[in-house]
Design a protein around this nucleic acid. Structure first.
Length: 249
DNA sequence: TGGTTAGCAGACCC
DNA sequence: AGGGTCTGCTAACC
C-alpha cells in the first residue's frame, strides 16, 4: 500500500502558511520588508493528520538549490570528536551523519546530552535563513545542519522537543542535494502493544524544498530519516529553529 | 522519573 | 536466495 503523501495532490493557494504578519523582529533587522524580493509566492502543500500539521513547498529552483548546496559544502564546518558522538541506552556511538550548529552569538543547543555552541552565521546560511523568513513570516535564531553523505547515513526516530526551543514556533527544514524519504510516526502507534493503530506519514524531501513543522506536530509525532541503500549522493538538511533566549544575566 | 537522534535481530516482502 | 526495509528491543544514564 502506498502511504506516501502524493506530490502535488492538493496544492493550496499560493500564499504563505501563516498570514503575512509583520515580522517578529529581532533586534535591528531589516526595516521594510520587500515581499517582492523572493518574487513569486510559493505554492504550499498542507500535510495533516491527527496532531500533525506541516506545510511543504519547493522554495528554491534547481539552479539556485545547486548553488546553495555547493556553497554550503565549502562553508560549513562540521563537528568532530566528542561533539560527533551520541550516547543511547548507555552506549556511545559515532553519529551516523555529520552535524554543525550555527546561530546568533552565544546561543547554545543541547542535543542528546551534548551542549553545542552556535557558530556565527555564514553568508549562505544567512541568505537561506532570510529566504525562509520572507516566505514564512517567521524569524529564526539558530540552525542545525545535518549532512548525509549517502543513503547509509541516517537519523533515528525522535522528536524535536528540546526545552530550549520555542514550542510555538515552527521548525523550518530545508533540503538540498539527494532526495530522501522522511517518516513520521505517531507516539501512540509505537511499541508492541501500541495503544492505537495510526498510519505513518511518509514523504520525500526534494532538492530545494522547505518543510514547516508546525505546533503541535513535535508533541505527538516522531520523525526519522531511514537508511536508503540505493541512494548514493549526499544531502544537506538545515533545520531552522527559535531558541528561547534566557534574558537573565 | 521516564525517555532515549544508537545498532541489532527477526519478520516480511519482493 | 538474499538484500532492503520495517519494527521492536535495549536495560544505563541523565
Amino acid at each position: 500500500m502506498e502511504t506516501f503523501v502524493k506530490k502535488r495532490s492538493f496544492i493550496s493557494e499560493a500564499r504563505s502558511p501563516q498570514k503575512k504578519i509583520k515580522l517578529e523582529s529581532d533586534e535591528g533587522m531589516e526595516q521594510d520588508e520587500e515581499d517582492e524580493e523572493f518574487s513569486h509566492p510559493v505554492p504550499w502543500q498542507k500535510i495533516e493528520a491527527e496532531g500533525l500539521d506541516c506545510d511543504y513547498a519547493l522554495l528554491f529552483s534547481k539552479e539556485e538549490a545547486d548553488n546553495l548546496f555547493k556553497q554550503l559544502e565549502e562553508e560549513v564546518v562540521y563537528s568532530t570528536g566528542e561533539e560527533a558522538k551520541v550516547q543511547v541506552f548507555g552506549k556511545v556511538y559515532d553519529i551516523p551523519r555529520k552535524q554543525a550548529t550555527y546561530g546568533d552569538a552565544g546561543l547554545t543547543y543541547t542535543y542528546s546530552r551534548v551542549t553545542r555552541l552556535a557558530n556565527s552565521w555564514t553568508p549562505t546560511l544567512e541568505y537561506i535563513r532570510d529566504a525562509v523568513t520572507k516566505t514564512t513570516g517567521r524569524a529564526f535564531n539558530f540552525v542545525l545542519v545535518n549532512r548525509y553523505k549517502d543513503g547509509q547515513d541516517h537519523m533515528g526516530e525522535h522528536r524535536d522537543d528540546e526545552k530550549e526551543l520555542d514550542p510555538l514556533c515552527p521548525i523550518a527544514s530545508i533540503s538540498l542535494g539527494a532526495p530522501r524519504d522522511f517518516i513520521f510516526r505517531h507516539r501512540d502507534a509505537r511499541g508492541k502493544q501500541s495503544l492505537r493503530q495510526i498510519e505513518p506519514v511518509k514523504l520525500e524531501l526534494a532538492h530545494g524544498s522547505l518543510l514547516l513543522m508546525n505546533s503541535p506536530t513535535n508533541t505527538f509525532w516522531y520523525h526519522s530519516l531511514p537508511v536508503r541503500k540505493k541512494s548514493s549522493l549526499p544531502r544537506i538538511n538545515l533545520t531552522f529553529r527559535r531558541i528561547v533566549v534566557d534574558r537573565k544575566k
